[in-house]
Amino acid sequence: MPIMTVREALRSAMAEEMRQDPKVFVMGEEVAEYQGAYKVTQDLLQEFGPERVVDTPITEHGFAGLGVGAAFLGLKPIVEFMTFNFSMQAIDQIINSAAKTLYMSGGQLGCPIVFRGPNGAASRVGAQHSQCFASWYAHCPGLKVVSPYSAEDAKGLLKSAIRDPNPVVFLENELMYGQSFEVPEGDYVTPLGKGKIVREGTDVTITAFSIMVGKALKAAEQLADQGISAEVIDLRTLRPLDIELIVESVKKTNRLVCTEEGWATCGIGAEIASQIMDHAFDYLDAPIARVSAKDVPLPYAANLERLALPTVDDIITAVKNVTYK
C-alpha cells in the first residue's frame, strides 16, 4: 500500500469528493491562495477555482453561520477552522443552527456540513490555542463527531463525513498532519460510528482517539515487554460512540483505561466510564481509570507543558494501577 501523510490523506479526501459532487465546496481562513494554514487544502484552489475554494475573512461566527445557511439550501460545505479553538466563536451556529434545526423543523431541514480543522494541543502555543473540544461537541445531539488517528482513517472518515447528510464535526490534530501511514488505493470510505481495535490484548482495554492512539500503542508496546497484554481501541467517532466495541473488549479484559488529551471533567473518558458501568459493570475487576490533561489551562513553558499533557508513562501507570501490578 502507498504511504501517505495524514495531511495528504485529508486533502485527497476533499479533492475526491469535490470531483464527484459539485455541491461540495471548501471555505475558511487561508484555505485558497495561501494553500491552507497547515497546507491541508494544498492545490485545491488550482483544481477547483475560487468559487469552490473560498478564502474567508477572519470571521468565524459569520462564516460558520454562512456555511450552515448554504447547507440549508442543499450545498455541502466543508468549513475549515484554522484551529478548533476558534470554533468557540462559532459554536452557537454549530449547535443551535446546524445541530438542532432538523429536529426543530420536524425533519424538514437537514444540514449536510463538515466543520473540520486541527483540535487540541499543538506545540508550545499556549492555553488559547491548545484546547480539545471533543467533549464539547460530543455532548450535543444532532451532531456527529469524528476524530481520526491514522491517514487511512483520516481519508475514509472525511469522505464519509462529507457524504453524510448530517452536520459532522471533524477533529484533526496538527501534530499528526506530518505523520505517515499506509493508505489503501482508490475510492474507499470508513463508516462513521465505528471504532477499531488497533492492537489486540487480553489484560486491559485502553481507549483513545486522535493523537492519543499513538501514545496508547506505544504504552501497549512497553507494557508487553513487562508481561501486560493491552488491547487498544481507536474510537475514531465520538458521537455516536461505538460503545458495543468497548463493552465487548472489557468483557474480555475486565479492565479499562480511557485516555484523552482534553480535560477529564465531563470528558469522553467520563462518558465511557459511565456507559461501561451501565453495560459491563459485572465484568469489571478494577475501577475504570482515566488519563487526561491536567486540570489547568495549558502552560507555555516547555517543562510545564510536558507536565500538563497526558504521556505514554501516564498510560502505563494507569494500566498498572488497574491491573494491580
Binding site: F25, A64, G65, G69, A70, A71, L73, N96, S97
Partner: peptide, 15 residues
Amino acid sequence: AQVSLGTGMAFAHKY
C-alpha cells in the same frame, strides 16, 4: 443568527 444563515442562503443562490 438568522443574518449569517441568510447570508449563506444568498451564497447558495449565487453558487
